[in-house]
Design a protein around this nucleic acid. Structure first.
Lengths: 135, 135
DNA sequence: TTGTATGCAAAGCGTTTGCAGTGAT
DNA sequence: ATCACTGCAAACGCTTTGCATACAA
């Protein structure tokens, strides 16, 4: 049905994978485009979209849907975790296994999963961290 | 800056408000359009968007952002609650104050709010409820 | 050499906006 | 009679797709 090619190891796709590895946080398509372009000049936006989709299908990437933003993508296989969306710098971080969700949906509803996003200001914006930067 | 008009009580806007009242659950723009059109024939999509935005600004509506779907809207002022997204029928329900979120973000991060969505199958899809319908 | 992956440009889709006409006040 | 609101269609921003070319294999 969905032919999942992605069998060739091209310069472009490698540049895109590297962008995620280097960033260490969820990235938007446009950020990926910019980052990967510094390595693979002339990289087309369409290729970014196609590669991201392909990496999603092969399970290397995962979608991060934060309310109010365009979808972000992050390297998959990190185990259950949630996201923190900084309302000041608009950056999204992930934090591993630090949230407990005790959800009780109405009777008759079967819960199979959940999605949690925290909002607030990040360490960098709070000036609480000495090394405050990101890409 | 943002001139929040919405001072006239038109047939169209009333039809849109009614659609939300009757539905009793978060609606997508297209659903609102369809529902309101049965009352106000010839209703334009642009008017639906404009009215929804206006109702958001006056605080009558609130955005419901469910991962993977286009934004939904619901009547505001219902107090803190969360949403349940049925992975079978794609409908979204709200459930009031039944979730406890114990979130511990990284040090230096200040949390001011959160957003939780549960995924699973709803009562209607589970056949667990005798009155299983919605609009 | 073969055919996947790329780059570009056109097309799609949901949402917004410009404009002239409609209708609430 | 005014002027906000409406409907239509064009414009937009983001994402996808068609097609000829480039390059991994």
């Amino acid at each position: 049905m969905a032919k999942t090619l992605g069998e060739r190891n091209t310069r472009q796709k490698q540049a895109i994978r590297d962008a995620f590895v280097r960033a260490g946080r969820p990235l938007a398509t446009e950020e990926v485009h910019r980052a990967a372009q510094t390595v693979s000049a002339g990289l087309g936006l369409a290729t970014v979209y196609r590669s991201i989709r392909s990496l999603l299908e092969e399970g290397w990437l995962a979608v991060v849907d934060v309310p109010g933003r365009n979808p972000l993508y992050e390297i998959a296989g990190k185990g259950h975790h949630h996201h923190f969306s900084c309302t000041n710098c608009a950056r999204v971080y992930e934090f591993e296994g630090c949230a407990t969700v005790d959800a009780k949906p109405p009777r008759g509803f079967k819960t199979t999963g959940h999605d949690l996003t925290l909002f607030g200001t990040c360490a960098a914006c709070n000036g609480t961290s000495r090394k405050a930067t990101a890409s």
